[in-house]
Nucleic acid binder design. Sequence first.
DNA 1: CCATGTACCTGAAGGC
DNA 2: TGCCTTCAGGTACATG
Length: 267
Amino acid sequence: MPELPEVEVVVRELRERLIGERIKAIDVFWPKSLVKNGECAEKQVIQAIRRHGKYIIIELQSCYLVVHLRMTGQLIVTPIARKNEKHLQVLIHLFSGKFLHFFDSRKFGRLYLTKYPEQVMQNVGMDALDEHLTSIKLQSLMAGKTTGIKSYLLDQRHIAGLGNIYIDEVLYESGIHPLTSVQNLGADEIDVLHTTIVATLNLAVRHMGTTISDYKTVGGGFGGYQSFLHVYKKENTLCPRCNNKIVKIRVNNRGTHYCPQCQVPKK
DNA sequence: CCATGTACCTGAAGGC
DNA sequence: TGCCTTCAGGTACATG
């Protein structure tokens, strides 16, 4: 489900609702959902909340609660516990009386209670919206790689935050075929790609992210960016630019959508 | 380094 | 209605 924009919206809403709250107790219904690593006393005050790629980092007084939502994870804050609801995997009680719920139908998501967040995120690259990630920096990161651009962007070790939806959209906007080898991208194309990544992600954040099926904001709302998608899940519709059919192929076993006219394969 | 397959899970959608 | 297959926004890990 959630990629960088959805996670960013969740982080902003969590901040409004949770800073200064003290954790009272944690109920775990699916043990794999909560990973404990090192001593981390639970009854701590939430100091700060930030994001790196698709990870949510909740800073406590002497350790961290790191969250990755994977495909279907949801963090929901309510004044009344929604106990016994389907797919509730972890329930965090707060001293104020509020509750932080972790719902996750597919159970791929993880909460890590840890002193060492850098260990949890050791393979995560620079955040896609990091101001230090310039187009020059992106060029140097790509140097020496031979993989296709879609595979490259899916791999969070390179750049963190983009997932299947936004990669398809960004490549469409940039006019780059998803199988183009990164070594065949010129400086000008990397520059367009970089500009498009930043613009697309920021625009999606302004629209509260993309809700295809499961994604919800912390308050239970939906995203709105799905109305702006050009290619993702649009196979057989007409390209708004050239009027040819959008096609769907598989790249890295992921559904991949593009316009064969506007995104010409370079190799 | 790279590509591919599998595993982790559940539910929705499509074919018959 | 029901059974079966395929697919889903993510990532880790094993294998050539």
